[in-house]
Amino acid sequence: MENKSLTALVSAFSRAYHAEHNQIKIFDDSLARQLLTDEEYEGISSNMSQAIAFFQPEFVGSPEQGLRTVVDHQLSPSPLGRAAFAEQALEVAVTLSARQYLIFAAGYDTFAYRQSNWATDLQIFEIDHPATAVDKRRRVSALHLGVPANLHCITADLTEPNWLSSVLACPAFDPSVISFSSLLGISYYLPKDVFKNLLSVIASLLPSGSSIVFDYPDEHTFTSQAGERAQRQVMMAARAGEPMQASYSYLELEEILEEVNFDIQQHLTPSEITRQLYKTYNENTPEHKITAFDNVNYCLAVKR
Rank of each mutant, 00 (worst) to 15 (best):
V92R: 14
S166A: 07
L90Q: 02
I103F: 12
H129G: 02
S141T: 12
D121K: 12
T110S: 01
R99E: 11
T110P: 00
R99M: 08
A86F: 12
W118P: 05
V92D: 09
A106T: 09
T120C: 10
S97L: 12
L96R: 15
Q123C: 10
S166K: 06
S141H: 08
L151G: 00
T110G: 01
S116G: 14
K136A: 00
V140T: 06
E87L: 05
W163N: 10
S141V: 09
V94P: 00
V140W: 02
T120L: 10
I127A: 00
D109Y: 06
H129W: 04
V134M: 09
V134R: 13
T95A: 14
I103G: 14
A156V: 07
F125R: 10
A131L: 06
R114I: 01
G107Y: 11
E126G: 09
D135W: 01
A86V: 13
A131C: 02
P148E: 04
V140D: 02
F85Y: 15
D109T: 10
C153L: 11
I154Y: 03
S116V: 08
Q115Y: 02
F111V: 09
A112Q: 10
F125W: 06
S166F: 01
S141R: 08
V140H: 01
F85P: 10
A84S: 13
S166L: 00
D128W: 03
W118K: 11
V140E: 01
S116D: 15
I127Q: 01
T132S: 15
A98C: 15
A86D: 07
R137S: 13
D157A: 02
T120D: 09
A142V: 04
T95F: 13
N117Q: 11
F111W: 11
D128I: 01
A119Q: 00
E91W: 06
G146F: 01
I154T: 01
V134I: 13
H144E: 13
A119M: 00
A105S: 06
T95W: 14
S141M: 06
L151F: 03
Q123W: 06
F85E: 08
L122K: 06
G146D: 00
D128M: 03
V167N: 04
I124A: 07
V92S: 11
A149W: 04
A149T: 11
